[in-house]
């Protein structure tokens, strides 16, 4: 079963066509990353799926329900999803554990607050007031509040913005563990390495349309694109683009009669591919 099914989604703000016909199918258990520059329609799409925004056209099903669902049905639907928004800076006068414990009371089958704090690495800050947390700690609290209800589907919006490299690695491990527990995850991120490390599939959205949906390894023909072999010959660096890097290396090996000086074989990074796809526009 697909946790998210979107067909022909459209949304305009006045004259601005933010989303111009998006289709998405995300099967249960997948980590799916939505990539795109600011203003591409990423946030609008995700907020429609989260039930925060209305749409102009198209069909949307999230866990089998239209996110427009209201009243008791809406509560039961929200009981099954978790949302980590870009930023929330409220409740500074409560402690971490008070807040997590309080939010756990909203759900029918919450995780244990201490276990969630341990999972996000905040157990030592349990008794601290939220206003005394660092930016990264606060972000981890956001994540804790997103997963406290044992969601079947988790929305993560730019989850690691402001993390140091170590905290990002720890966060990625947490996300992989959640997937291991069967949680489906829709991730939006600016970091291509994050998408590559976490996502089973990525979609690139630009100008309100999905350009491509693929695995990170295959996006934009990355797996089949030419490799670049480079080496030093005398005091010159030489490069050669090729479909058969192994034979080039074998040839060079024979040429040098052993070790090839400063040999590298590279394929385009996900970032290279992504930037080409969105027309080289940097965010």
């Amino acid at each position: 079963m697909n946790v998210i099914e979107v067909k022909g989604l459209k949304k305009s703000y006045g004259q601005v066509h933010a989303v111009r016909g998006v289709d998405l199918s995300i099967p249960a258990g997948e980590i799916f990353a939505l990539l795109g520059p600011n203003g591409a329609g990423k946030t609008t799409t995700v907020e429609i799926l989260e039930g925060f925004r209305s749409r102009d056209a198209g069909e949307v099903s999230v866990l089998g329900f239209d996110p427009k669902v209201q009243g008791h049905g809406g509560r039961q639907w929200r009981d099954r999803i978790g949302i980590v928004l870009q930023s929330a800076a409220d409740a500074g006068d409560l402690t971490v554990i008070e807040t997590v414990d309080h939010f756990s009371g909203y759900y029918s089958k919450p995780r244990k607050p201490d276990e969630v704090l341990a999972a996000v690495g905040l157990e030592e800050k349990s008794g601290a007031l939220i206003r005394n947390l660092s930016g990264g700690q606060r972000r981890r609290l956001d994540v804790a509040l997103g997963i406290i209800g044992s969601p079947e589907l988790l929305f993560l919006d730019e989850p690691t913005t402001g993390f140091d490299p170590e905290a990002r690695r720890a966060f990625w491990a947490l996300i992989q563990q959640l997937r291991g527990d069967g949680t489906s995850i829709l991730l939006t991120t600016h970091y291509l390495d994050e998408a590559e490390a976490l996502a089973d599939r990525v979609a690139v959205i630009n100008d309100g349309l999905i350009i491509e949906v693929s695995t990170p390894a295959e996006l934009g023909g990355r797996a089949t694109s030419q490799a670049v072999v480079s080496w030093r010959d005398g005091n010159q660096i030489k490069t050669e683009a090729t479909d058969n890097p192994t034979s080039v290396v074998t040839r060079l090996n024979a040429h040098f009669g052993g070790e090839i000086p400063e040999l590298t074989v590279t394929r385009p990074s996900l970032e290279d591919i992504y930037l080409t796809m969105i027309g080289g526009v940097h965010e």
Binding site: E50, F52, R78, I83, L85, A88, Y106, S108
Partner: peptide
């Protein structure tokens, strides 16, 4: 500060 939006996203 986004506190209300976060509440809106819960049951």
């Amino acid at each position: 500060v986004g506190g209300l939006k976060r509440l809106r996203g819960t049951p």
